[in-house]
Computed example of a mutant assay.
Amino acid sequence: MITDLSLAQNHAFQLARTLMVPVTLFRSGDEFGVLPSDELDDEDDLEIVHEFHPWPAH
């Protein structure tokens, strides 16, 4: 997990572009994490920060 938000955002964006799938940046306690969005469950006790998409918005 990562403790710096800007670093976590950068990793999340890069992961979305590399995997070419949406990824979710979440917070758990004092740390941030990133997972492909389809791997998150509604039961997960996570604070969603942002979802990154691999394709730019037009």
Rank of each mutant, 00 (worst) to 15 (best):
S28H: 04
F52H: 09
F52I: 02
M1I: 02
E51K: 15
I48K: 14
S6A: 06
D42A: 13
A57G: 03
G29Q: 08
E47Q: 15
R17S: 11
D45Q: 13
H11P: 00
L46G: 08
I2M: 10
V21C: 00
L46K: 04
A8L: 02
A12W: 00
F32H: 03
M1Y: 04
D42M: 06
R17V: 10
P22I: 08
M1P: 01
F52G: 04
D4Y: 06
L5Y: 00
L46V: 14
M20S: 04
L25V: 10
F52Q: 01
S37I: 01
S6C: 01
Q14C: 05
I2D: 08
P54D: 09
P22N: 09
I2L: 12
V21N: 03
D38S: 13
V23W: 10
T3I: 07
E43C: 08
E31G: 01
D44K: 04
A8N: 02
L15S: 05
H11M: 07
H58G: 11
V49D: 01
V34C: 15
L40E: 06
D41P: 00
R17I: 05
R27H: 04
H11I: 09
F32I: 00
L40C: 11
T24Y: 06
E51G: 02
A8Y: 01
D45S: 14
G29D: 05
D44P: 05
T24V: 12
L7W: 03
L35D: 04
V34M: 04
D41H: 10
E43N: 12
V34Y: 04
D41T: 11
E39C: 06
D45P: 03
D4C: 05
Q9W: 02
Q9I: 00
I48T: 15
E39D: 13
L35C: 13
D38A: 13
W55L: 15
L25K: 06
P36R: 10
Q14E: 11
L46Y: 09
P54Q: 03
P22W: 02
N10G: 12
F52T: 00
P56T: 15
G29K: 04
A57T: 14
H11E: 09
M20C: 06
L40I: 13
L40K: 10
D44M: 12
D42V: 07
I2S: 02
H50P: 02
A57W: 07
F13N: 11
D38Y: 03
L40D: 06
H53Q: 13
L25R: 07
P22H: 08
T24S: 15
P54F: 15
D41W: 07
A16T: 08
H53S: 07
E31M: 08
I2E: 12
N10C: 05
V34K: 01
F26K: 05
F26D: 02
E51Y: 05
L15Q: 11
A57S: 15
L25N: 03
L40R: 11
A57N: 12
D41E: 14
L19P: 05
F26I: 02
Q14K: 10
F26C: 05
F32N: 00
